[in-house]
């Protein structure tokens, strides 16, 4: 779970840097405003994530203000960073619990950066539908107990899908609001 959240946070930060170069402090503020309604980022997490992204070559230090401390560094996204962000955006996620954080982040990052959220949502929808077809097929051969577990997964994936449909119908309005 920790891994999923950390990765999603990384991409959220990449998305913000894709919009403009930013300091760590600025990134935290922007993150909390755009993504962090229920879970604001801690500074430690921001700097840890930035260090990883920098080590992986996805961001670079664009300038250092006079003074001391990590908050003096201004970061920018590299071309590798843009490539990785786009790959993440275009790859559908396998349905799983906690996926909402990832899907929500993808929608906001896509809209923030003027990329198409429609295409990503439609491909995600297809992935979810395909997994539901597989599970429904598996359930046919399953015992009642295993079938009940499969049902549990099916209902959760269906809830994701409802959200995807719902979000797809509101992208224009959401885009307006997010730019604020």
């Amino acid at each position: 779970m920790g891994i999923v959240r950390r990765m999603t946070v990384s991409y959220a930060l990449l998305g913000l840097l894709n919009e403009a170069d930013r300091h760590g402090y600025d990134l935290k503020q922007s993150y909390d405003r755009r993504f962090g309604a229920t879970r604001p980022l801690r500074f430690g997490q921001v700097y840890r994530t930035l260090a990883q992204l920098e080590r992986d070559g996805l961001i670079a230090v664009a300038g250092v203000e006079p003074g001391a401390g990590p908050e003096r560094k201004r970061y920018s996204i590299t071309t590798d960073g843009v490539t990785d962000l786009e790959r993440w955006l275009s790859e559908p996620e396998d349905p799983q619990p906690q996926l909402q954080t990832v899907l929500f982040t993808k929608v906001v990052v896509a809209l923030l950066s003027g990329r198409s959220a429609d295409v990503f949502l439609e491909e995600q929808r297809q992935r979810h539908l395909a997994v539901m077809r597989d599970l429904t097929r598996q359930r046919r051969e399953a015992s009642l107990r295993d079938g009940m577990l499969i049902d549990y997964q099916l209902f959760h994936i269906e809830a994701d899908l409802r959200w995807i449909e719902h979000a797809a119908g509101r992208l224009d309005t959401l885009a307006e609001e997010i730019k604020l």
Binding site: E122, E123, L129, I157, R162
Partner: peptide, 22 residues
């Protein structure tokens, strides 16, 4: 979706057009 999952294949219609998976 849970009903559609019984099918071999799904076609989505939006605004009178078929949406093809990319």
């Amino acid at each position: 979706p849970r009903v559609a999952a019984f099918a071999d294949r799904q076609l989505t219609v939006r605004d009178g057009r078929a949406v093809l998976p990319a």
